[in-house]
Design a protein around this nucleic acid. Structure first.
Length: 425
DNA sequence: TCTGGGGTCCTAGGACCC
DNA sequence: TCTGGGGTCCTAGGACCC
């Protein structure tokens, strides 16, 4: 008998993860149409009951309220989801050290060879992982077992929720025939359209193309998918528990569009402060900044710049934004969102100091921000912020109050006096 | 009439993911 | 009814160098 398992890769995928966490926290929600995303204004997760009523991912909450008024719409609770997520990884790691934390609700596990260690076949190991997750976390996971990541991902999608699917050598092609091309991991709408034109409608159609045609028509990512559909193991697992980040971003959509330069700038300022706070939490410095404004029509204007020195201080970034804001802002336009992405990140201890005077100034700022972070940790985000972020933060607090009185009442956050650390632009 | 040929590094932007 | 937020990777093309 040929070796059916050159590799044994498990894909584990939380079913409606955010909603499942909410139900685990509050069992009364079980069996009800529940949507998470009240704070973002769109559905980012929904229960099967809500799906059955026609709620889809990305649907605006206003719309959901209209078409299915009985739906329970909750704000996100990232802290809880992260805790459940960590417990999920911890459980999976009991079965193998080779675990890739792919996203908050998904992971890959390479259990190759573990049948000898655990004295049971791969299928039983995968089943046991699923059962342990269910019994210890109270959450459903769909599990797929196959010989590489692409096929394991296809497997876990086959039956949901609480599915368990094995794709081993002999039945690869059967499964590919019932997998549409647009549902393949790594094939988006653009590529799916291109493949349709070539007569490729299923994963099986793609896998059946001769290599010469694949190399002529497609670039590396799709060639690799093609190889994996043949059963080859191409995509390695990234098993670092804390992968190095290459960027940190923060964006926020306003409640209503605005042409007010002060308001738009202050929204940007608040995002920059938020991104810098994340930066300090990760003990990183940024060297490059990219900001954008997004208009009502979803057009973007970008401004990118390199910082004179690596920093975690929002003021260093805002000084440049303030000088150059006119390059991206137009009074004629209405804006709906701003955002910032920090890149060229390096660990904080490799900071090189420029001039002696500069070093001293930065030391002072470090002390200030150490205390800002402590206060934020104690009293919640935005306890202290730059005066330039004031309008946006005031606006956000007002929106929070009016959108959910209940939330507001339960919000016992103490607001301290504002500390002005910069100019009001 | 014809304007080398590489290599490397960087960046903008597209595509995709959850 | 009206469209979120946070990421990664790849490619093409320009700049620069020998």
């Amino acid at each position: 008998m040929p070796n059916c398992w050159p590799r044994a890769i498990v894909h584990i995928d939380g079913d409606c993860f955010f909603v499942a966490c909410e139900v685990a926290k509050n069992p009364k929600l079980k069996g009800q149409p529940v949507v998470v995303g009240a704070d973002r204004g769109i559905a980012c997760a929904m229960s099967y009951e809500a799906k059955a009523l026609g709620v889809t991912r990305g649907m605006p909450v206003g719309w959901i309220r209209k078409i299915c008024p009985n739906t329970i719409i909750l704000p996100e609770d990232p802290t809880s989801y992260t805790l459940y997520s960590r417990r999920m990884y911890e459980i999976v790691r009991r079965y193998t050290p080779e675990v890739e934390e792919y996203s908050i609700d998904e992971c890959f596990a390479d259990i190759t060879g573990m049948h000898r260690v655990l004295h049971k076949p791969y299928i039983e190991i995968a089943r046991e992982i699923q059962q342990t997750l269910k019994s210890e976390l109270g959450l459903d996971f769909s599990v797929g077992l196959s010989v590489n990541k692409v096929l394991a991902k296809i497997a876990s999608k086959k039956q949901k929720p609480n599915g368990f699917t094995v794709i081993d050598w002999p039945n690869i092609s059967d499964h590919l025939q019932t997998t549409t091309i647009q549902s393949l991991w790594g094939i988006g709408s653009q590529t799916a359209r291109q493949m349709f034109k070539l007569g490729i409608k299923t994963a099986y159609d793609l896998a059946s193309k001769p290599p010469a045609e694949i190399f002529k028509s497609f670039t590396k990512p799709h060639q690799e998918i093609w190889h994996e559909l043949q059963g080859k193991f191409i995509f390695l697992l990234n098993t670092k528990s804390q992968p190095n980040k290459s960027s940190i971003s923060k964006t926020k959509t306003f409640g209503a569009t605005s042409s007010d330069q002060h308001f738009v700038y202050s929204a940007l300022s608040a995002n920059i402060e938020g991104a810098c706070s994340k930066l300090r939490k990760s003990k990183l410095l940024t060297g490059k900044v990219s900001i954008f404004l997004k208009t009502q029509q979803f057009e973007y204007s970008h401004l990118d710049f390199v910082l004179p020195w690596p920093t975690t201080n929002p003021k260093d970034i805002l000084d440049i934004c303030h000088q150059r804001f006119a390059e991206v802002f137009s009074k004629e336009k209405k804006y709906r969102a701003t955002g910032v992405t920090l890149s060229d990140l390096k660990p904080i201890n490799t900071e090189t100091l420029n001039l002696f005077g500069e070093a001293i100034r930065k030391e002072n700022n470090k002390i200030i921000y150490r205390h800002v972070d402590l206060l934020d940790h104690r009293f919640g985000a935005n306890t202290i912020f730059l005066a330039s972020s004031l309008s946006a933060i005031k606006y956000q607090k007002m929106k929070d109050k009016t959108s959910s009185l209940k939330n507001f009442l339960s919000n016992k956050k103490r607001h301290l006096g504002l500390l002005s650390l910069g100019r009001v632009n």
